[in-house]
């Protein structure tokens, strides 16, 4: 983990309000793991004050590059969206925990909206392992969004996974409906689930997993952060094991301890 002023290599629009930022920093690119995030100071001013966390969307150690995919939702992401190639961005990373896929034979990746970012990285990493003929799981990728415009990186993902199942709420691409409706054919008991998206969606995925007796799963959670490094205790979420810090006990937490009922109330 380090702090640096990383040059923005490219800012690429990937849909309405969606941007893919690629940065250069060899250390971060070399150490980044899927599920981990960077914490970005979006302006040099005191407002917005706090850093903004973004999951790593990919990392290429050979090129010393890594990327994040973000949706413009407020002041901080608007400021970040104004940055252009060549600008140096103050960021910290890689932070937090990663998805654990070693030993998994069947992986089901479930992404909702911009939650696709860490799962895109995971799919890429597994794909690279396969290219290098290392043991790696079979990957089914279920990807849901409101409409086809929200399906950033779907074509890229399709090339790297065994099966991509797309759902959109308006039916503009793939199956119409919520991503949870596309899971059932892929819930064999030995499947490990990797999930990131809006909290109600993750709650539904966890419920379905438990109904089907699936034990192994990793979920990437979100919460308002203060420090991002574990000191302020501001980012905690309730779990079956008590409060856990999203920034350093997470963002990726094991399904076994998750309790979305407590989390949603």
């Amino acid at each position: 983990m380090k702090q640096c002023l990383a040059p923005l290599v490219e800012s690429r629009p990937l849909g309405p309000g969606l941007l893919l930022h690629t940065y250069h920093d060899s250390d971060i690119a070399a150490h980044a793991k899927p599920g981990q995030f960077i914490n970005v100071r979006v302006s040099g001013a005191t407002a917005p004050l706090l850093r903004r966390p973004f999951s790593l969307c990919d990392a290429d150690p050979a090129a010393g590059r890594f990327s994040v995919l973000f949706r413009v939702v407020g002041e901080g992401t608007e400021a970040l969206a104004r940055a252009g190639a060549g600008d140096r961005i103050d960021l910290m990373g890689p932070l937090g925990t990663a998805f654990q896929w070693e030993g998994v034979e069947r992986a089901l990746l479930v992404a909702g909206g911009v939650g696709v970012a860490p799962l895109h990285f995971l799919a890429s990493q597994i794909w690279r392992a396969k290219q290098a003929e290392r043991p790696a799981p079979r990957v089914v990728f279920a990807y849901g969004a409101r409409d086809s415009g929200g399906l950033a990186l779907a074509d890229d993902i399709e090339k790297r996974v065994d099966l991509l199942a797309i759902t959109t709420e308006d039916g503009s691409r793939g199956q119409r409906g919520l991503v949870t409706a596309a899971l059932d054919p892929h819930l064999a008991p030995d499947t490990a689930v990797f999930c990131c998206g809006p909290t109600p969606m993750m709650a539904a995925v966890l419920r379905r997993m438990r109904e089907r007796g699936l034990k192994r799963g990793w979920f990437s959670l979100e919460n308002q952060m203060g420090c991002g490094v574990g000191v302020c205790l501001g980012c905690v979420v309730p779990t079956r094991d008590g409060y856990r810090r999203v920034c350093c006990d997470g963002p990726v937490l094991p399904a076994a301890i998750l309790d979305f009922t407590a989390l949603c109330s």
């Binding site: 407002a47 917005p48 004050l49 919460n223 308002q224 952060m225 203060g226 302020c232 501001g234 905690v236």
Partner: peptide, 17 residues
Amino acid sequence: PGNAPQRLVETPSGLLN
């Protein structure tokens, strides 16, 4: 155990905890 979340809110140039 501390308070239930939400524990933090950002405000103009400030942080409420």
